[in-house]
Design a protein around this nucleic acid. Structure first.
Lengths: 338, 338
DNA sequence: TTGTAAGCGTTATCAC
DNA sequence: GTGATAACGCTTACAA
């Protein structure tokens, strides 16, 4: 260390000054700090990692979600939240995009086995995820965005309260005077769909309303066409006067269908996608706060890495209803019509 | 090294096997490789960095462009291109988001001074950029997306050929039979605007047409409102029969204006934004290929880091015209009407 | 063809 | 309070 020479002390003393050790005299601290300033000294990250056995770096595995990248701001927003949070604690972020799941695992392994990172964040939680599978077999802390299966016992996770979010949405619609709010969801075996459907039902119950199965449609996918078909079916067998959709794309499909049929109902979607925000009529939607999801995932992970002994291994992030044209005016209905 | 023990050789031999040194017998290579396999050995990145004096990591500085993140897929696409390219050469990527320019410089310095990275990629090139200013004063290779000022002599850069892209756009419009194509641009002192305007003029000249200054409008900004005003002005003082816009948002404003006035002209924008792709009528636009820009930036930088002695310090990335509804049908006009 | 030993820049342990 | 010294895991002369 040149700093050591310049200030006439040993390297160990310099190290102690860096860590502001209490057993170093103020005088030498001054001197050493001046030398550091003068030489523009900054500690070498590799040397530190080597001796400390930690990198203060987090690895991000980003899935191969082609189009989603273009139309959904989710990933970039989450990456931003992660970055901002990590900075607060002096952590760095490494990321890599993959083309398929085996490649994801490959990069994951590289990060871990070569000691590039101390912990991992997975941007999505999937069923039978090979990354989680791998991570469960190791001792590397990791966090997931989404609620993982119970068998992934080591996972830290962040998620929205999908039940509550949908409960609030439906309550909002009902309290504006609507009587026959339909539920339009995606794949029925996905946990988001199930949770949101539960929220829908509970809201109806709370309002003293019966559940009409004809008002519930779960599509085989999340495309606009699925929403379109769903709406067609719903109209065919019941008389909805509003739609709570578990996804924006489904909601957009439903709107398309209504347009064709020449009428419009209040609609609320989920995920606050760009398409919903732009298309006319602009779609009211529940924002899942990707930035917060990212930030909290990073927070949980870093706390664990820093050895904070908290028993919580998850965090629920509040959603936010963005009201746009598809619910414009329905607040007027709050005033009971007599 | 446990591998060394297990295979009964010295650590240096193991190291040589890793690097496939020609001076190691095939027999020992076999043995050592088996041992590595057996123990699941992978070299420690920090130790390597320390001894080699390089990290094989690239740092990404992402600017504070608030809304752009939501509406423009540019950043995430570029980050993806960078990641994919870096993987090919065994490089890692670190990134950090910043809230303002001073913060950008702060993170930049941290990356460099603590030896976290070997090189830097700046996602945008701005005038009087403090990051570039800093980098010019150091010996760290860096690449920029966009064409930097001449005084940033050390910068590697990638950019589209904005002159050519606009030349092609206008040629396309003219050859479809249009006679009075208007130019709608942003801030006139920005190089993109100037280059694209030059392309516009050159295309007219090539077609033997005079340049009518009344058909040229450069707005004070890049918002939709600027495009709206621009179109209004253009209509007021000339009779355009088509619009070549240097930006999608301007083009969208122009379309809004036309809609109000009850007519429509062929329009082509730039940057292939999501809004243009979604709004009706969908906007034809020149895609600047953010993924390619990112990939090529990474490529240039890594080549330099690996010591390849090439004299090229830049790369031009081809644009791609995405034809949508605002130019639907104009190809018919290719057939000369008699 | 392989081994020995020094060194990369830090931190931690022990001494004084 | 401060300084030696070893160690982290790897690479690379230099020896053999």
């Amino acid at each position: 260390m040149d700093v050591a020479k310049l200030s006439g002390v040993s390297p160990s003393t310099v190290s102690r000054v860096i860590h502001d050790s209490s057993r170093i005299s103020d005088a030498t601290k001054q001197r050493v700090r001046q030398a550091m300033e003068h030489l523009g000294y900054h500690p070498n990250a590799a040397a530190r990692s080597l001796v400390r056995g930690e990198t203060r770096t987090i690895g991000l595995i980003i899935p191969n979600s082609e189009d989603d990248l273009f139309f959904r701001p989710f990933f970039i927003m989450a990456m931003r939240g992660i970055s901002i949070e990590a900075q607060k604690h002096g952590y760095n972020i490494m990321y890599s995009f993959s083309n398929n799941e085996p490649e994801e695992v490959e990069f994951l392994k590289k990060y871990i086995l070569r000691n590039h990172v101390d912990g991992i964040i997975l941007m999505v939680s999937r069923e039978n995820d090979r990354c989680m599978e791998y991570l469960e077999g190791r001792d590397v802390p990791y966090a997931v965005i989404g609620h993982p299966d119970n068998r992934y016992a080591k996972a830290l996770w962040v998620d929205n309260d999908n039940f509550m979010a949908m409960y609030d949405v439906v309550t909002r619609l009902l309290s504006s005077g609507l009587q026959r709010v339909a539920f339009l969801g995606g794949l029925p075996d996905m946990s988001v769909t199930r949770d949101r459907l539960r929220g829908y039902k509970e809201a109806l119950r709370t309002h003293g309303m019966d559940i009409d199965e004809d008002l519930i449609y779960t599509a085989p996918g999340f495309q606009e066409s699925d929403g379109y078909e769903g709406m067609k079916t719903l109209i065919g067998r019941s008389h909805p006067d509003g739609v709570a959709s578990a996804d924006d794309l489904l909601a957009l499909g439903a709107l398309e269908c209504m347009k064709e049929q020449g009428f419009s109902l209040p609609v609320i979607g989920f995920n606050n996608t760009i398409k919903g925000a732009i298309k006319s009529p602009t779609l009211s939607s529940v924002d899942i706060r990707p930035d917060q999801l990212g930030a909290k995932a990073a927070d949980l992970l870093i706390k664990k890495l820093m050895g904070e002994e908290t028993s919580v291994n998850f965090c629920i992030v509040d959603t936010q209803l963005i009201e746009r044209e598809t619910t414009a005016g329905i607040s007027f209905l709050n005033i009971p019509r007599t």
